[in-house]
Simulated scan of single mutants.
Amino acid sequence: MNTFKIEGDYIQLIQLLKAMNLVEHGAMAQWVVAEGLVKYNGAVDYRKRLKLKPGDVVEFDGQQIKLV
């Protein structure tokens, strides 16, 4: 499991995918979320601007990322 340190109160889901280099660009990040390919705390979530906070876990493409 990878970790990502949040600077500030939160990070948006599509920003996290870009910051972790899991997608090539923002449009691709929006597409993978809209297609239901991303899990948030164990469940598929379709909100592109979902605010992630420390303790949340995101799963995409076989990788898990825990926010700290």
Rank of each mutant, 00 (worst) to 15 (best):
Q12T: 14
G26F: 03
V23F: 04
V57E: 10
Y10K: 09
G8Q: 01
T3N: 12
I65D: 00
Y40H: 13
L67M: 08
W31C: 13
G8E: 01
V68H: 01
K5V: 15
K18E: 05
K18T: 01
K18S: 00
K48Q: 14
V38A: 03
Q64H: 05
V57Y: 02
M20D: 10
D9Q: 14
F4W: 12
L16P: 06
T3Q: 07
M20N: 10
V33F: 01
E24F: 02
L17E: 08
E7N: 15
N2Q: 14
V38G: 02
Q64E: 12
P54C: 07
L16I: 09
A43T: 11
L17S: 06
K66Y: 06
E7Q: 15
N2G: 03
M1C: 09
V44T: 14
E24D: 14
K5C: 10
A27V: 12
F60R: 02
I6S: 05
E35M: 11
D45N: 15
V32W: 02
E59P: 05
L17F: 08
F60V: 01
L50R: 15
Q63W: 00
Q30E: 09
L17K: 10
M20F: 03
Q63V: 10
K66C: 09
T3S: 06
I14N: 15
Y46G: 01
K5L: 10
K5M: 07
M1D: 12
E35S: 09
V38T: 01
Q64C: 06
H25Q: 07
G36H: 08
V58A: 08
M28K: 12
Q63L: 12
R49M: 03
G26V: 08
K66W: 00
A27E: 14
K51D: 06
L22M: 15
F60D: 04
L37V: 00
Y46W: 02
N2W: 08
T3H: 11
N2L: 15
E59C: 07
N21F: 06
K48N: 05
P54N: 05
Q64D: 01
N2E: 15
A29T: 04
Q63A: 12
E7K: 15
F4K: 11
M20S: 14
G26P: 01
P54R: 09
E24Q: 13
A19D: 14
I11F: 05
M28A: 13
V32Q: 05
L16C: 11
M28N: 09
E24L: 11
N41K: 05
G55Q: 09
Y46R: 10
K18R: 13
L13T: 02
M20L: 14
G26M: 06
Q12C: 03
G36Q: 09
G62K: 03
G8I: 03
K53V: 15
L22D: 13
D61V: 05
Q64L: 07
M1Q: 13
Y40A: 09
N21I: 01
K51G: 03
E7D: 14
